[in-house]
Structure formats: structure tokens, C-alpha cells
């Protein structure tokens, strides 16, 4: 059921220790900073986080990692010029890393939301990221079996929601939002604006409200 929630703190209050949490965003674009801050305040720990990166600078996901709340990162590009909190935890052996090629990460998330049990992809074939995985030659190309990534919760950012939970995004901040919304059991969305039902052109809805559980407006 869709609920509209007044504060980010209430929106994330149900996230339990040990949860797998998908967090939208590519770098800072589309990263739901207010929801992440609320998760940090809420104290949930031992989390597995799915994101493209592993935090930038001293905000958002980077702080969640700094505070030791993240047991494992599933991501494609953890090492950046400003990923010092992840780098320190990784070098200290205090965080687990599952490194996934970016397109495989996206497709594994998509597969979870679409009820797909796995898929063969040429990406990564013959590389160390395919070691130990089932492979086949399909259509003359080596391919690697990849499995879906499910999550207990997704935290994403959209531009607008209507009264049915339909979402539209803004520019490249869309990135992982639509697929994470579908892949998680419980999807929490922070939006800049809530419009009345009927206020979004149905032709332009990007994420249908069926994938959305909680919406909170942030300033």
C-alpha cells in the first residue's frame, strides 16, 4: 500500500539491521541524501548496500560507510578521487566488496524486479570478474551466468510523484531509480514535488506507482 509520509525519519524507521538496501544515484546525481541521512540517524547497521559507487566526499552514502553501518557494498565503481571513507574501510578489511560490471549490476537489479532467475551476458566473459561463474557459448560468444540482486528496501530520488505514486525523474538523475524501485520489497522515494492525481501525463510516467510504497517530500 502507498503511504505519504511527512518526514524522512519516519520513512526509513522500518529498516532493520542486516537489511539489503538499494540506494539510487550515480555519483551525487539522483542520490537520495535526505533519506540516507535519516538512515544514518536511525541507527540501522550491518547493512548490505547496492549502489553504483561507494560514496563521494563526506556526505550521503560515504557517511553511512564511515560510521560502520555498511557490512557489504555491491557496486561497480567504488574507487574515486573522493571515496576516502570507503577506501579506509576496505583497506582495514572492515567492509566486504562485491564488484560488478556496471551493466551487469543494472541488469541484475532489473532481473530481480522482473522476476527473472538469472541471465547469460557477454560482459565480463574471460575476465577475473567471471571467475567461478557458469559460462556458455551462445550465438558464438562466451557468456556468463548472472543472478538477480534483490533488496529489502530501495531508497531513491525522483522529481515528482502524483497521488498514485507514479514518478518522473530529472535528467541523468534517473539512473538506477526505476529499476531499484521494482527490485526492492519496499521502495521509499524522496521527491521534490507531489502533484495531485492526474497531474502527471500518463504517457510520461517513468515509474508506475505499483512499485512505490512510501513517498516523502523534501525541500
Amino acid at each position: 500500500m502507498l503511504t505519504f509520509i511527512d518526514t524522512v525519519g519516519e520513512a526509513v524507521a522500518g529498516i532493520k539491521d542486516g537489511s539489503t538496501v538499494m540506494i539510487g544515484g550515480f555519483g551525487n546525481a539522483g542520490q537520495p541524501f535526505e533519506l540516507i541521512d535519516a538512515l544514518l540517524d536511525g541507527g540501522a547497521t550491518d547493512l548490505t548496500v547496492v549502489n553504483n559507487n561507494a560514496g563521494q566526499g563526506d556526505q550521503g552514502l560515504a557517511l553511512l560507510i564511515k560510521e560502520g553501518r555498511v557490512r557489504k557494498m555491491i557496486c561497480s565503481f567504488p574507487r574515486q578521487s573522493d571515496s576516502w571513507h570507503f577506501d579506509a574501510k576496505y583497506k582495514a578489511g572492515e567492509i566486504e566488496l562485491e564488484l560488478v560490471p556496471q551493466g551487469n549490476l543494472a541488469e541484475r537489479i532489473r532481473a530481480a524486479g522482473a522476476g527473472i532467475g538469472g541471465f547469460f551476458t557477454p560482459t565480463g566473459y574471460g575476465t577475473m570478474l567471471a571467475e567461478g561463474k557458469e559460462t556458455r557459448i551462445i550465438d558464438g560468444r562466451g557468456q556468463v551466468f548472472e543472478t538477480p540482486i534483490h533488496a529489502d528496501v530501495a531508497l531513491i530520488k525522483a522529481l515528482k510523484a502524483d497521488g498514485k505514486g507514479n514518478l518522473v525523474y530529472r535528467k541523468t538523475a534517473r539512473n538506477f531509480g526505476p529499476i531499484m524501485a521494482a527490485a526492492a520489497k519496499h521502495t521509499i522515494v524522496q521527491v521534490s514535488e507531489i502533484v495531485p492525481t492526474g497531474g502527471l501525463d500518463p504517457e510520461n510516467v517513468v515509474t508506475p506507482g505499483i512499485y512505490v510504497n512510501s513517498i516523502v517530500k523534501v525541500a
Binding site: 565503481f77 574507487r79 576496505y90 566488496l97 564488484l99 560490471p101 556496471q102 551493466g103
Partner: peptide
């Protein structure tokens, strides 16, 4: 620290 991003997808696709 390994970081792959989209490199493998681009190379293959």
C-alpha cells in the same frame, strides 16, 4: 581497490 564501472560492458557491447 578494484573499480570496473562500465568498462567491460563498453568493451563487449
Amino acid at each position: 581497490i578494484p573499480a570496473v564501472g562500465g568498462a567491460m560492458d563498453l568493451a563487449t557491447g
